[in-house]
Each structure stands twice: as C-alpha cells, then as structure tokens.
Design a protein around this nucleic acid. Structure first.
Lengths: 217, 217
DNA sequence: TGACTTAGCGACCGATTGGTCTCTAGGTTG
DNA sequence: CAACCTAGAGACCAATCGGTCGCTAAGTCA
C-alpha cells in the first residue's frame, strides 16, 4: 500500500542536519529531502537503468512520497537532469581531487580515468547519454550539460605533466578518444567480460598516448 | 481503436511472396509476418530505443496484431533476442561483403568499420547491449549472442592484409579496442557532435594501428 | 499566539504496459 | 467436400506509468 519503505537510512540526509536540537529550518528540510531524492535517483539509474527509474522507484528508494517529490521537481525529466548535473559534478570532483593530491603521470592517470568511467557515477551519466539518443526531450536538456562536462574532462588533462605540453586541440582529441573508448568498454564488458584483454588494453592505451605525444611535440 | 495502421507498405514481405498467383503456403505466410515483425522491431529500437519498443509500437509499425505477434514469439524478450541475432547477422554480412569485394587495406577498412558502427543496425545492437546491463533477463539471453558476435568481428580482421600477420590475441586486442571506441563515439556524438575531432580521430587510429602492427611483427 | 507559507503525504486519474483468450480466416490433408 | 490445423485479429486483463489535488504537518513572522 505504502511506497515509502526505505526510510531515511540510505540517504545522506545528515548533510542538512539541524545545527542544534531536533528542529530544522525549512531550508534544511528541503535540502535533506532533495538530497535523498538525488541519491535515490542516481542509485536507481545505476541499478535498474534510465527506463526502470520510475517515479515510484525513486519514491520507494528515497522514502519520499510522490507529493513530496513533485514539490521539488516539476517532472521526471527535471529530476533526471538534476541527477545528471550532480553526477557530472561528482565525477569531476573525484578526478580533480585525485589529480590534486597525486602528482602521478600518464601511466597512473589512465587507470584512474578508467576507474572513474566504470564507477556507478559515470554509469549513470552514460545511461542518460544513451537514453538521450532516442528521447528528444531528454537530449535537448542534457546536451548543454554534456558539452560542459566533456570539455571539463578534457581540461583536467592539463594536470597530467605529459599532456600539459600538448595544444588544447590535441589534448582534447586524445582525451575524448580515451573517454569514448572507456565508455564503450564499460558496456561490452558487462556482456562479455575479458579481464586479460582489458589488462592488455590499458597498456595499449598508454603506448598509444605516448606515441601520440611523441609525434606532436 | 486499431493499432494496425502501417499496413504492409514498410515491410519486406516480398521476400516470402507467393511463387504464383495470390495464394500463399502457411510457410510463406509465417515467413512474411515474422519478417515484417523483425523489420518493425529493428526500426523501432533504432528510433525510439529499447524501452520505447513496446509490443504496441511494434504492432503499429508492422501492421500485425498483438495476437499475430504472440503467435510467433512467446514474449517481448523472445522478439528482441530474435532481432538481436538478425542485427548481428546483417552487420557481419555487410562487413564481409565489403571485405570480399574490396581488396582494401587498413586505411580503407577503418572508415568502413566506423560506418558499420554508426549504422542503424549497430545502433540497435548497442541499444540492446546497454539495456542488458541493468536487465538480468535480457543479459542472460544476449550474452551468448554477444560472445559470438564480438568474436566474429575480430575474426573479420584476418581479411585485412596488415592485420593478417598479427597473432589472434593481438588482432583481437586491437579490433575489440577500436570496436569499443567506435561504440562510445556513437553515443557522445549524438549529444555533442564534433566533426573536426572525429576526422582527426580516424587518422589518429590509423596511425596508431600501423605503429602497433610495426611493433608486434 | 494566530495568520501565513512551505514541506510532505497518499488517494486518485487517464493512459499505457506485457500478456491472454476467444474467435474467424485461410491453408492442408484425407 | 469435411475435418483439421495454423495464422491472425482484437477485446480484454491486472499492473504500472507520470502527474494532480486536497489535505495535514512543520516552520516563519507579525
């Protein structure tokens, strides 16, 4: 009868916890609920896909009612676009943190990049990108977000010493190519896993990048 | 009221046309209907995605009734798996025909491969591969088909002179990598098209493939 | 405190989903 | 021709879809 089964357990509601006592401001209440909805939407897309992420599914996972959801998002599309922006931001934040704290060169950055593209966060992104191909409404809303996201990924390459010397154009060519490759690999490996090939491929990509850099500098 | 609007116009029903006169055998009737359903399923997945390819959508496109559809396929999953097998077969047939009639080397084979991966046929395949990630029933049925399909693609490489000398392992590594790259590219370009980058990328892949071949032989 | 606003709930709506069932049309076989 | 079988049609089913609406709960502010 009641869709709200998950409760607040899975949510990161603590983010907007009251500063003191049991009383929360309206701002805090709103933030906490939106945050639970975001987490639920992201995990739903990752686990049951874009098509399976119905309003009911998100309500079930978040413990928020339909009425509560539609208070903060006008439509499913609005919810999903918010999740896409969140997911792009998290992906970049994690990668940036790694590049900042780690002085690593190309041979360390590539496995990091592959790991990022296999993470739940990027799977959600990719799921939305694929759905956008055949859903005009989603595509129109997602395209500008994608444009910024993809550019930001290429810009991150500046923090890798070997790539810093490349022109913007060459660096973007190289990184966008590796990005597409990792995304394609994420799909084929879900269907036909080939751990040996994957290991060899990482070496191959590193050789490819070094070959490319040598030719262009 | 009636879903059957398309009629027989869009179908390739002519394949199973009666040998003479207006009378058809049961075999011919069945073949013609299944063929119309396959074409409708493939075009539907290509245009409205896997999730949008409902039984109703396929019936509308094919002009076959629900009863007629379920006469030949026990479930939507059966229909979709049949379409996947058809799509893999067509992809390979087209590529094989090109490689047979054309003596072309690597520099011609790569654009052909990219074109194949952008074709409606491969988009249908990829749409199913992505859906299979979060749909266990689909994944179980699609995995063996995918295994054969992917292996066949790598085997096609033997017909490209430059790749013939490589070991099976190296050839598979190279071709599966390019395959994943082209599939990933097909998605990102639908959202953020970059014709200039795509042109540069094709050259880049060719140069790298030549570099790889030189190192391994 | 009392008036007002925002957050959140869940019954409800019409449309659509995958699938079933009964019935008719058409081809096959004695 | 009669009996039989497969092909195909479409009304119908329960479940689920995205979204609405009237209501109560909680926070704000005079």
């Amino acid at each position: 009868m009641n869709e709200n089964a998950a409760g607040a357990g899975a949510a990161t509601g603590a983010v907007a916890a009251p500063a003191s006592g049991g009383r929360r401001t309206q701002r805090e209440r709103k933030r906490a609920t939106v945050s639970r909805l975001m987490d639920a939407t992201i995990s739903a897309i990752a686990e049951v896909g874009y098509a399976g992420t119905s309003i009911g599914e998100v309500c079930r996972r978040s413990g928020v009612s339909r009425g509560g959801l539609f208070r903060h998002f006008d439509s499913r599309l609005d919810l999903v676009i918010a999740a896409a922006e969140e997911v792009a931001a998290r992906h970049l934040a994690t990668a940036r943190a790694w590049l900042g704290g780690h002085g690593g060169g190309l041979r360390e950055a590539l496995p990091m990049m592959r790991e990022r593209h296999r993470d739940e966060i990027n799977i959600v992104w990719f799921e939305l990108a694929v759905a956008a191909r055949s859903d005009a409404g989603l595509r129109d809303r997602l395209a500008p977000v994608a444009d910024r996201f993809y550019r930001a990924i290429s810009d991150l390459g500046r923090h890798v010493p070997e790539l810093a010397a490349l022109s913007d154009r060459d660096r973007h060519l190289l990184i966008s190519t590796v990005r597409d490759l990792f995304d394609g690999e994420t799909i084929s490996r879900a269907l036909v896993p080939e751990p040996g090939v994957e290991a060899d491929r990482l070496t191959l990509i590193a050789e490819f990048a070094e070959f490319f850099i040598a030719r262009r500098t």
